[in-house]
Design a protein around this nucleic acid. Structure first.
Lengths: 191, 191
DNA sequence: TGATTTTCTTAATCTACATTAAGATGATTT
DNA sequence: AAATCATCTTAATGTAGATTAAGAAAATCA
């Protein structure tokens, strides 16, 4: 049986019958992944996409000075992969690892393509969730253009309330685009 | 007959027969739009998405100080809309206008939904181009986290070589997230 | 439990970029 | 062609946030 969190994610956008759910299940691999364990290393090819059932994963890149920049947090019910590598099958520039002990479903590129033929409705499901991911990525672009660091932090707290107390603060600094020292200073000002 | 630029865009990702192309054509409206003319005003609902056949459109938001921030340039063969408003049918926070005299195809939300039923392959087409838009939006997020203003400008020149000489420089400044004065200074340094 | 490592804080100094202002160039309109 | 308006440049000054450094607190490990 597919995990309820994934079923819920599907049924928000499409209707699947029991038979289709079973087909999907046969193309997914359930896995537990421990805190700090990697799902994808840069320079590899992203063969897989992950759906997070519990816990939290993140994707990040490392720049030429060695600093990490977090591109995405994937808490419960989010998908995560290096989309560029996943669709082009070229080398990944992102790392993906677990910030907490997590449970995920793994969907390979190959299985995804098979599923698009076996259960064409999934084409719609992935179109819609990709549209939503695009909206949120573009909102983040606007936020960096329009807001101060403090405003971005406040917004982050509202968008990811569950993360504030479960992950190190320096990761939040990395996501909103400031140094840990400066975020610490911002927090001291008002909270 | 559908314009070749759009046909090409489809055929990069899916195969359509003549019949399907005709159905699609019946759901699109061809329009010429003059420089400075609006395609969408903020606070309206985005009923339409535009495919650019020639010319260039842009989407931008206006912050509380009245400054414009450019979210997207859409030259030839790009789609543009306020995706958030288009899929939620809520109020738009973006303006979209033409930077040059342009030709576009207009696709309404309603017609898009009808087309998904009449030509299900389009579901795949829009999934794939949305995935690509997501990749490029996320790359832009990483660029603002990793690169200096000068590096972002150099990169912009490589990604949009056609725009450099056809639109005002202050729009490029707005897109890469610096003031026009600072971009002017950067350009003076080396070119 | 104590020892080691990681994270957080504070503070001084530095810098990339913003702001303001004013003149110069270029485009658009009449 | 002149007049108007938008764009680009240069320069002086201001500031949000970076960097460096060092100690405190918290988490992880032996």
């Amino acid at each position: 049986m597919l995990n309820k969190i994934l079923i819920d994610s599907f049924s928000k956008h499409i209707h699947l019958d029991i038979n289709e759910e079973e087909i999907i299940e046969q193309h997914l691999v359930y896995k537990k992944i421990k805190k700090r364990q990697y799902f994808l290393h840069e320079h590899q090819t992203a063969q897989n996409s992950a759906f997070v059932i519990s816990g939290c994963l993140r994707s990040y890149s490392i720049d030429e000075n060695g600093s990490e920049h977090i591109l995405q947090f994937a808490p419960e019910k989010w998908w995560i992969t290096d989309m560029h590598s996943f669709i082009s099958q070229g080398a990944s520039r992102l790392n993906i690892d677990a910030l907490l002990d997590s449970e995920i479903y793994i969907l390979s590129r190959e299985h995804q393509n098979k599923l698009f033929d076996l259960v064409p409705k999934l084409e719609r499901y992935f179109r819609i969730i990709t549209e939503k991911a695009l909206v949120s990525s573009r909102q983040r672009v606007l936020d960096t253009l329009e807001l101060t660091a403090k405003e971005r932090y406040t917004k982050f707290c509202n968008v990811y309330p569950g993360l504030i107390n479960s992950i190190p603060q320096k990761l939040i600094a990395s996501y909103i685009g400031v140094t840990p020292e400066f975020l610490s200073k911002l927090r001291a000002e008002q909270f």
